[in-house]
Amino acid sequence: MDAKQRASLQRRFATHLQGLLPQWPLSAPLLVAVSAGVDSSALLHLLRLCYPGPLQAAHFDHALRPCAKQDLAHVQQQCAQYAIPLHVGHWLPPAQKANLAAQARQARYRFLAQTAYGLKAPFIGIAHHQEDQAETLLERLLLRGAGLKGLSGMRPLAPLPMAEFAQVQLLRPLLPFSKKELTSWLQGEQITWREDPSNQDLRYTRNHIRHRLLPSLNALGVGEAIPQRLAETALHLQQADAALQWMVVQLAQQLPIEPYQENGLQLPLQPFAELPAELRARLLDHMLHTLVGITAVGQRAKENLWHHLSLPAKRWQMRMQGVAVTRVEQRLLVQPVLRAPGKRGETNH
């Protein structure tokens, strides 16, 4: 990538970043997660050049790879060279190895969240790019049978999945950019990075999608456009998802959903039951998020509620995910409860 192409990429990044942030310019610090790999190295240096506020970096050592010390040393050298403050976290892997990757990911995000909270940083920069988005869509489509929200992939701006840090958002400004162009930009800028050997391990689902499935799709004859097209599909689905969420807010006002007693909500039964299933499910998510902070109700719990709505009985109560849903004649009452052990999904008629 020559100097003109690198300048063009940098301008594209700056324009995209400015469009993502609700207020521009920002004076608050931005925390960027840096692993030493090509993706996070590109994000660190693009933010260094384009972000108008103070930039700080964070590196988390999972203690799972033999090259962890070298990765940390590389990040320290890069940050010191450009006077970027660096925060380092360490993790002691548990003796119980079940779901180790998920535990490590949760520990990393908790460290990032705590660091951002301490800095009063509203955003954490994460280096997911176009291929990551394509892999996310394929994984959720083929292995999880995800619905619209899941197939929308990763959002460029999303709240942390931790209630205590809800004011901190994940910022993913590299989603429109391919790994190939980010790598070429770093090479042209003569910026080094470190390779993660685990990215070649086909025991991990993501690596199998990256190294086996995507290349086989490229054999269809569209070449490297496959990740771009999948990322564009995810963006279209995000727009459809946002439209449905907008409609849910309108429905909450029209039904209407009103306060009930001190800490509950009530709504008319028939208009709710007659809604299309997707809108009914999203309205339920909206109510539970309002009451107890749950972002999404499990499918089994929803199906249980739909079953109860079809019953002739005009009085019943069921519990799910921290709330009691009660039918009283033609009204539904939704109230938070303390869930006793072994009472999940309990129903009273």
Rank of each mutant, 00 (worst) to 15 (best):
Q253F: 05
Q254E: 11
L255Y: 08
I257R: 06
I257F: 01
E258R: 15
P259R: 12
P259S: 14
Y260G: 08
Y260K: 13
Y260L: 09
Y260W: 11
E262L: 02
E262Y: 01
N263T: 09
N263L: 05
G264M: 11
G264D: 10
L265T: 00
Q266L: 09
Q266N: 05
L267T: 10
L267F: 12
P268S: 15
P268M: 09
Q270N: 04
A273K: 13
A273R: 11
E274V: 06
E274Y: 08
E274N: 15
L275F: 13
L275A: 12
P276T: 10
A277D: 04
E278T: 13
E278I: 14
E278C: 13
E278H: 13
L279G: 13
L279I: 07
L279C: 12
R280V: 08
R280P: 02
R280S: 10
A281P: 01
R282V: 08
R282C: 05
R282N: 06
R282M: 08
L283V: 06
L283A: 04
L284D: 06
L284K: 04
D285C: 00
D285R: 01
L288G: 00
L288V: 02
L288H: 00
H289V: 03
H289S: 13
T290N: 02
L291M: 07
L291I: 02
V292Q: 00
V292K: 01
V292R: 00
G293A: 04
I294M: 02
T295W: 02
T295A: 14
T295F: 02
T295Q: 04
A296D: 05
A296Q: 08
A296I: 00
V297I: 10
V297Y: 03
Q299W: 07
Q299G: 11
Q299T: 14
Q299P: 07
Q299D: 15
R300I: 06
A301H: 08
K302N: 10
K302M: 11
K302T: 02
E303M: 12
N304P: 03
L305N: 06
H308P: 07
H308D: 14
L309T: 12
L309P: 09
S310V: 07
S310N: 11
P312Q: 13
R315I: 11
W316Y: 09
W316E: 15
Q317K: 14
M318S: 15
M318W: 04
M318L: 15
G322D: 02
G322N: 06
G322V: 00
V323S: 03
V325Q: 11
T326S: 15
V328Q: 12
V328P: 00
